[in-house]
Amino acid sequence: MADLKYYDVILKPIITEKSMNSMSEKKYTFSVHPDATKNQIREAVEKMFAGTKVASVNTMNLEGKNRRRGNTAGKTSKTKKAVVQLTEDSAEIEIFSGL
């Protein structure tokens, strides 16, 4: 397990049509560090966004895709995605407002 601080866990928000539709249910999607655990993701969201309380965290490991450029073949890096469900009395996350 990596020694990650809470500000190293969440890399960026994922803005897609599906993730924007799930925001009405207080579900937010983030790209997270591949070695982060569910407890680390929960702690990072609660510390980074004031007034939020996390109900559950679902994670997905995404393998890298095969890519070719001419005769050279390689793979993109693997990533991890987290869907964070907030509680009913929790505050909204401000970075998603106005999108």
Rank of each mutant, 00 (worst) to 15 (best):
M1H: 08
M1D: 03
M1I: 10
M1R: 04
A2N: 04
D3G: 05
L4D: 03
Y7C: 01
D8W: 06
D8Q: 15
D8F: 07
V9P: 03
V9Y: 06
I14W: 05
K18Q: 04
S19R: 05
M20E: 03
N21Y: 04
N21R: 13
N21F: 04
N21G: 00
N21C: 00
S22G: 00
S24R: 13
S24E: 09
S24H: 07
K27W: 01
Y28N: 01
F30Q: 05
V32Q: 08
V32C: 10
H33S: 09
P34F: 12
P34H: 08
A36R: 11
T37P: 03
K38W: 02
Q40S: 10
E43G: 02
A44T: 13
A44P: 11
V45C: 12
V45S: 08
V45W: 13
F49A: 05
A50K: 13
G51W: 01
K53A: 12
V54C: 08
V54G: 02
V54L: 10
V54D: 03
S56N: 13
V57A: 06
T59K: 05
M60R: 06
M60Q: 09
M60K: 10
N61I: 10
L62F: 00
G64S: 09
G64R: 11
K65I: 07
R69F: 10
R69Y: 09
G70H: 05
G70F: 10
T72K: 14
A73K: 13
G74M: 09
S77A: 15
K80L: 04
V84K: 08
Q85L: 08
Q85F: 02
Q85C: 01
L86P: 01
L86I: 08
E88V: 14
D89R: 02
E92G: 01
E92F: 05
E92N: 06
I93P: 00
E94I: 07
E94W: 08
E94L: 09
E94N: 11
I95K: 06
I95R: 05
G98P: 02
L99P: 00
